[in-house]
């Protein structure tokens, strides 16, 4: 009985943010609302958010993040699977070393390093988003697949499952929670990377921050900062519904 109460309280603690943050985000992109609220910061003058409506900037931003995530699922999961097959220890260690390196190198450096070859705009931003999102997905995927109890793999093999059947019926379902946690981390992190992408001319909510900073318009900066923070918190809370509690 007590566990039931505790469980429902815990799930309430997960559902509430998943409703609250998106609701605030939706309110924030209502045309004119947030700029008017923040007007006092600009001496009472309503900041000019440009010709693109806020909801469109938020959608573009979300589009960057989600399309990068889609690419990452298609690239990262097979990669994690490939390096965790038996007899590929050296490849797995290489993948771990490379993802560790990717985690260390600053976001802006990765984005900026792509500029000389890809030019400014969406292309280097997407490359940066995909590379950055790849890191937690691959490392969590590898960790999740490695964490599958060897006895289960032994039982599955002993029952006559082929390598592919073991992967689909046992290893992937069991490592799914860890994999999803990695996907959540990378999605949330990429909201931030996409913000910086605005400095490369990719658009999205970061555009408001960059423009605000260059025009020394604090209110405009705040509009962008609040909306991108809300987007990150919303995605974190919503994806949190699908991942087990830590």
């Amino acid at each position: 009985m007590t566990t039931l109460v505790a469980r429902s309280r815990r799930s309430l603690g997960r559902v509430l943010p998943a409703l609250l943050w998106p609701a605030l985000l939706l309110a924030g992109v209502v045309p004119g609302l947030l700029p008017r609220l923040l007007a006092p910061l600009a001496g009472g003058e309503v900041p000019d958010t440009g010709s693109t409506p806020l909801w469109q900037l938020a959608l573009v931003h979300l589009g960057f993040v989600l399309s990068a995530e889609a690419a990452v699922v298609l690239l990262g999961v097979p990669l994690a699977v490939a390096v965790t097959r038996p007899g590929r220890e050296a490849l797995m260690r290489l993948a771990e070393a490379l993802t560790g390196l990717g985690q260390t190198v600053p976001t802006l450096a990765i984005l900026a390093l792509a500029v000389p070859t890809l030019g400014l705009g969406v292309k280097p931003t997407m490359l940066g988003l995909v590379l950055y999102a790849l890191v937690p997905v691959v490392s969590n995927g590898v960790a999740g697949l490695l964490a599958v109890d060897p006895a289960l793999k032994d039982a599955a093999e002993g029952m006559g499952m082929t390598g592919r059947q073991r992967l689909w019926r046992v290893e992937l379902p069991l490592s799914l929670p860890v994999l999803l946690a990695g996907l959540r981390i990378s999605t949330v992190y990429n909201v931030g990377t996409a913000t910086i992408g605005a400095a490369l001319g990719a658009g999205g909510l970061g555009l408001l921050i960059i423009n605000g900073l260059s025009q020394q318009n604090t209110a405009l900066v705040m509009v962008g900062a609040i909306l991108s923070a809300l987007l990150a918190l919303s995605l974190d809370a919503v994806l949190g519904l699908f991942t087990p509690p830590e």
Binding site: L41, V188, V191, G192, T193, T195, I196, G206, I209, G212, L213, T218, V221, M222, G224, A225, I226, S228, A229, A232, L233, D236
Partner: peptide, 20 residues
């Protein structure tokens, strides 16, 4: 955790107003 969720550029921006 919540602070970490906020994009770094947004956090930098959010602090401008209170510090000013």
């Amino acid at each position: 955790n919540g602070i970490q969720t906020v994009p770094s550029l947004a956090l930098l921006g959010l602090l401008i107003a209170p510090l000013a």
